[in-house]
Simulated assay, not measured.
Amino acid sequence: MTQIITALSEVSDRYKALFVDLWGCVHNGITAYPEAVAALQSYRAQGGIVVLVTNSPKPRAGVGEQLTQFNVPTDAYDTIATSGDSARSAMFLGAVGEKVYFMGEWQRDAEFFEPLKLLEHPIHIERVPLDQAEGIVCCGPFDPHADPDVNRPDFLLAKQNGLKLLCANPDIVVDRGEVREWCAGALARLYTEMGGESLYFGKPHPPIYDLARRRLMALGTDVPDSEILVIGDGPHTDIAGGIGEGLDSLFITGGLAASETKTSYQPDPDALSRYLEMEKMDPTYSIGRLR
Results as ranks from 00 to 15, higher is better:
T68P: 00
A168K: 12
T82P: 04
I30A: 06
M278Q: 11
E111K: 10
L119K: 11
D143R: 13
G234M: 00
L163C: 11
P115N: 08
P59R: 04
Q266P: 01
W182E: 03
L250W: 04
I252D: 00
E245A: 12
P141C: 14
G104S: 02
F155C: 06
Y265R: 11
T74D: 04
R176F: 10
F70N: 01
L250C: 10
D175M: 15
Q107W: 06
G242W: 09
Y200W: 15
E10Q: 15
F102I: 01
E134V: 13
L116C: 06
W182D: 09
L199C: 12
K159A: 14
P129G: 10
Q107T: 14
Y33W: 10
D268E: 11
F19Y: 14
V173G: 02
G47V: 08
V37Y: 03
Y285F: 15
L290S: 02
C138A: 07
G234A: 00
R152E: 12
G48R: 02
G255D: 05
L190A: 01
M1K: 04
R291E: 11
N161D: 06
C25K: 00
L229W: 01
G234E: 07
L247S: 08
T54K: 03
S226R: 12
A186M: 09
D233G: 01
R274F: 13
F19K: 03
M217R: 14
V100D: 01
M217C: 05
L211G: 12
S56D: 02
S259N: 14
A188N: 06
D143P: 08
R108N: 08
P283I: 08
A184M: 09
L290E: 02
D238T: 06
L119A: 10
G140L: 06
L247F: 11
V11Y: 09
E279I: 05
I5T: 05
A186Y: 06
Y285A: 05
I80C: 02
T68V: 14
N169G: 09
E65S: 07
A90C: 05
P224H: 08
D154R: 13
P153L: 13
R215L: 14
K203F: 13
S12E: 11
E277A: 15
R88M: 00
C167P: 07
P267F: 12
M281D: 01
A258G: 01
P153F: 15
A76P: 11
G220A: 07
T263I: 12
H124I: 14
R127E: 12
P267Y: 02
L276G: 11
